[in-house]
């Protein structure tokens, strides 16, 4: 073996040389067998993406189109394979979403295309790909990132879904508001039974966990915003749908509880600096339903106020809530048939779908805004824990 003479960092060009026969070993160690919870925790965010890109740069540098194609195909297929295998694990999916995006950003940042070079240092410009235009592969990677995003959303839904009805509707944190339970409410019994139920706190803890995992993986802030908006949409849609189907959830005090819960979710957004990501807006139908439970529902003026307030609810939803509304305390009254007729008449000309329930499967279209990195490739050092000692820094 040749003696490995350490070189000064400034002599490196930010490439990693590998033998063609080591390609499978490379994707195996760096993608298929990398444990996001183990080794990857201590890595700089996106390191696997940078390492793979530095290998790609070398294949480009030696002008070997077959090597470039083969590596890209192996990378993409390996990411797909690991997601097939561990696609129900939020950490794995989040890890590969952020790395796929980082790899895609690198392909742009070092493409030589002026539109992506605006923030580059001159050294970074020197490191642009020299022989191949990989625009078509960028498209494939972008398609892959969309697939991974959708998988992340599904994964997150599977975890959140069982918590939503219990945490947002059933569990009561405001003491003494409801007094007498509305008829038909399943009685919550001993504290032991409560231990198995989810509370709003469980939801908030889960949101914290998702958020901190994504931050740890160096997920693009713009992408985190989109995930959070989708999370809030699901929470709002599942909660509203259950409210629309359960008489025992349509009372003045439930309205109060929901508004409190929504305020806690808003507080969470504020705390995470995510107030402008559009998440709060997705809760608007639920907020309006909660308000509807609490406003007076008697006179023509009440009807007018309701119609202008509930612009995010469909007529079907408004009428359903009014029909289900169940007085709990002496000062509350059932909504009269006449009042509901008045509302229906007022809303007659609205152009809307007659759909009662919200689509809980809806996924907002995702985008991956270009996010160049200031990291200098030539300074990247690869920890031995990655098991890629067969790569040579060039």
């Amino acid at each position: 073996h040749p003696v490995n003479i350490p070189r000064r960092e400034k002599d490196f060009q930010g490439m990693l040389e590998y033998k063609k026969e080591d390609e499978l070993k490379l994707v195996k160690n760096l993608i298929l067998e990398l444990k996001p919870r183990g080794v990857a925790v201590n890595l700089i965010p996106g390191l696997p993406a940078y390492v793979l890109f530095m290998c790609l740069r070398h294949a480009d540098y030696i002008n070997d189109d077959q090597k470039v194609r083969s590596l890209l195909t192996s990378i993409i297929n390996s990411i797909k394979k690991i997601l097939k295998k561990r696609g129900d694990d939020f950490e794995t999916v989040s890890f590969w979403l952020s790395n796929t995006c980082r790899f895609l950003h690198c392909l742009k940042q070092y493409s030589g295309d002026e539109q992506f070079m605006k923030h580059n240092t001159s050294k970074q410009n020197d490191h642009c790909l020299s022989n191949f235009d990989l625009a078509e592969y960028r498209q494939v990677l972008s398609d892959l990132a969309i697939q991974i995003y959708q998988q992340l959303i599904k994964c997150m839904e599977n975890i959140l879904q069982p918590m939503i009805v219990s945490g947002m509707l059933e569990h009561e944190t405001i003491q003494g508001v409801s007094g007498v339970k509305p008829t038909g409410l399943r009685k919550r019994t001993s504290s032991i039974a409560d231990e198995g139920t989810y509370t709003l706190d469980s939801i908030i803890r889960q949101l914290n966990s998702f958020h901190s995992i994504m931050c740890q993986h160096g997920t693009d802030p713009e992408l985190i915003k989109q995930v959070v908006k989708q999370q809030f949409y699901i929470i709002g849609a599942v909660t509203l749908n259950n409210l629309l189907l359960r008489k025992d959830m349509c009372s003045w005090s439930k309205g109060m509880q929901i508004r409190y819960n929504v305020s806690q979710l808003e507080e969470w957004l504020r705390d995470k600096n995510l107030m402008t990501c559009g998440a709060k807006e997705t809760l608007e139908p639920l907020i309006q339903a909660a308000q509807l439970l609490q406003v007076k529902k008697k006179t023509d003026e009440d009807a007018e106020a309701i119609c202008s307030m509930c612009n995010s609810l469909s007529t079907a939803q408004i009428v359903k809530v009014l029909n289900l509304y169940t007085p709990v305390n002496a000062f509350e009254e059932r909504v009269s048939v006449l009042f509901i007729r008045t509302i229906q008449t007022r809303l007659r000309d609205r152009k809307e779908s007659p759909q009662l329930l919200m689509d809980t499967k809806l996924i907002y279209p995702v985008t991956f805004p270009f996010n160049p990195s200031s990291l200098a490739l030539e300074t990247i050092q690869i920890p031995s824990s990655l098991n890629v000692g067969f790569l040579t820094r060039v």
Binding site: T73, S78, K80, G112, F132, E136
Partner: peptide, 30 residues
């Protein structure tokens, strides 16, 4: 100037076509 370089466009297969080039053939077969 790096941006003035002429690079060769590498035609890429689609994601689905890529899947057919299974690089893990040996491992995946029973």
């Amino acid at each position: 100037r790096p941006q003035s370089r002429i690079r060769v466009l590498l035609k890429a297969p689609t994601l689905a076509e890529m899947e057919e080039m299974n690089i893990f053939e040996d491992e995946d077969s029973p």
